[in-house]
Design a protein around this nucleic acid. Sequence first.
DNA 1: GTGAAGCGGTGACCAGCGTCACCAATTTAA
DNA 2: TTAAATTGGTGACGCTGGTCACCGCTTCAC
Lengths: 209, 209
Amino acid sequence: MPISIEEIKPFLPSFNEELLEVIAASGVIKDLPAGMEILKEGQYVKMIPIVLEGLVKVFTSIEDKELLLYYIGSTQSCIMSFSAGLTNSPSRIYAITEEPSLLLLLPTDKLNVWVKQYPAINELFYQQYNLRYTEMLDMINSLLFGRMDQRVYNYLSEKSKIKEERILNIRHKQIATELGTAREVVTRILKKLEQEGKIRQIEGGIEII
Amino acid sequence: MPISIEEIKPFLPSFNEELLEVIAASGVIKDLPAGMEILKEGQYVKMIPIVLEGLVKVFTSIEDKELLLYYIGSTQSCIMSFSAGLTNSPSRIYAITEEPSLLLLLPTDKLNVWVKQYPAINELFYQQYNLRYTEMLDMINSLLFGRMDQRVYNYLSEKSKIKEERILNIRHKQIATELGTAREVVTRILKKLEQEGKIRQIEGGIEII
DNA sequence: GTGAAGCGGTGACCAGCGTCACCAATTTAA
DNA sequence: TTAAATTGGTGACGCTGGTCACCGCTTCAC
């Protein structure tokens, strides 16, 4: 489906008319519901997404464990797929829409050229690299220092911040999956956090205090 | 000290004459012995290094633990300092020469311009970002999956590969530090690896089999 | 309604590893 | 040559978190 410039312009204020035009000519817009897998592990990347609206989460997995690496929010992009796309190697992560999302998909071969041609888009990806880098470093630090209760609490407050809701509607199982641990462990820790007065478990959800 | 183009040209074959000239005009060359700290944690980055010869190792630390993140080899650069330099934020890592090294230091403000102007240097940093990204992902995976004996063995074989020596002259203490664990743990694991026939401990060193 | 599936809760157990407290051997410094 | 520091080796102990085996409750499908 053809993209109109007006459609994408508000989301990409740093892009000039010329860049918006070439994007409109070659890009694709997708409107996806929550819970869609937009990138599979091992897959070769032909289109690199920029999230216009919504929220996408990015996972890595080893053996049968999974781990939530980071969220891609509005006007952000997915460095891992950018990287995999440009080097033409299979993706090491997978990505799922956490909320209904509006995505702008750019073909990798074109993007490869645009990056050299348009400073604004080059700038965007440098920013994304820097951002994800520090996030991955934080992840490494929390894995190394390790305390699971701290990780669960950070996970909850982070999620609460992103969603702008003090009450999260979430299952123990999902927390466990996204942190790469087991459900029982999360249950135990949540009880402990509740006793410490940091959270409150209400029916079908968790309130962060 | 002024740099001659001939001095750096052999290490940077993808850079054209013009780029080499501006680098020669603004860059600095440093020849450092092994064990020098070239970047401290928390420090603001004014010069971004490219390693011409030698080997530099990059650490992160939390509380009183440290962790070896990756090595910077010949013609590679340090993404973390690049990132910290461009965003003008303090460094979250520190770096030490593992071997005597020849470094080319580029002023961040100039580099910021060059990146836009010279595709070759832009290319270099994209490559580095991609490389370090996958390395950090590997690190996250090994921390998450966790088995310490595997990490020690990977550490040793990686080091042996980089140094191109089957016998490593290294202390248990250093292994422990670079993996973010305790010396006793390493001693225990090395004994186990020796029993499994994967390594052999000889006086003052370790042979990888 | 009835059975099945999903969710949360709990106790028991165990492996991994960080920590402590030593000790012996070797190397280095004074 | 002595003393001091470095290195490696070990046993004991405890904490964290992964696993297993259940159980009761709620929700959903049929």
